[in-house]
Amino acid sequence: MSTASMTLTRSQMERSPIHTATIYLKETKYEFLKYLRVRMYTASVLSFPIMFYVLFGLVLNSHEAIAGTGLPTYLMATYGTFGVMGASLFGTAAGLASDRGLGWLQVKRASPMPPFAYFWAKVITSMIFSATIVLALFALGVEFGGVRMPPGKFAELFGVLVAGSLPFSAMGLALGYFTGPNSAPPMINLVYLPMSFCSGLWVPFMFLPHVLRQVALVLPPYHLSQLALSVVGAGAHESNATHWEVLIGFTMICLGMARIGFQRDQEKMYG
């Protein structure tokens, strides 16, 4: 009977690297499909930044310029930041809070799933949606906004924005551990919308009131948008090293908080 199989050795139980890679791949594939099929997610997270960009960057002000950079180019960087932030926060926090609060994460934890695969899938999925938004903005900007840059600049801007998904995914994981299934979406909006506004993602930074510009200095989206703007020649403030440092520091703090939440859940699980 099953006693025979009790003598399986350790090596038989360990997965091959290919098997592990397959798990990560499948976990990511299904996480992506899961979100792709949720119309609320795709409609709000993908279409808002694109709609805003079309409206404010292409329809209304396409011939204006800020600090020598055309508005369609400038807003590609800021709405790109806005889109990446939304896709990453919603892609991680909402799902995690719901999986935790409603028992699904326990089913996963009781299975032999490598725990890290779960987080990996969420972060990569957020990056894929972020990249989709950024590419859509690029296409619109080039086609309808007369955006012209060397391909290298496009690649650099793409890289900065998609890498920018990481701090907000980390923030999303932390939020997901400290909110419940029902409170997560409003909490995300409470963070997402005011932060976007104060960081100059909707209205260009120099048009914000002085007080808000002071607040922006401590907000991560401000720093990501400044990195993106510096690629298109419109980053007029601190050095890029400062922006990277703030974003990396912020990511570390968020991961630390997520880790506290993770351990808290391991130790006591109600319901």
């Binding site: 199989s5 399986l8 350790r10 139980m13 299904y30 499909l33 899961k34 099929r37 949720v38 719901s98 609060g101 409603l102 028992g103 699904w104 326990q106 089913v107 009781a110 299975s111 032999p112 299934p181």
Partner: peptide, 21 residues
């Protein structure tokens, strides 16, 4: 122990399973 998880299966009470899969 991770090896135990390989040899066990569990059906738990769940509030919500990913619905779009």
């Amino acid at each position: 122990n991770p090896e135990n998880r390989m040899r066990t299966g569990a059906m738990l009470q769940v509030g919500r399973v990913p619905e779009t899969l």
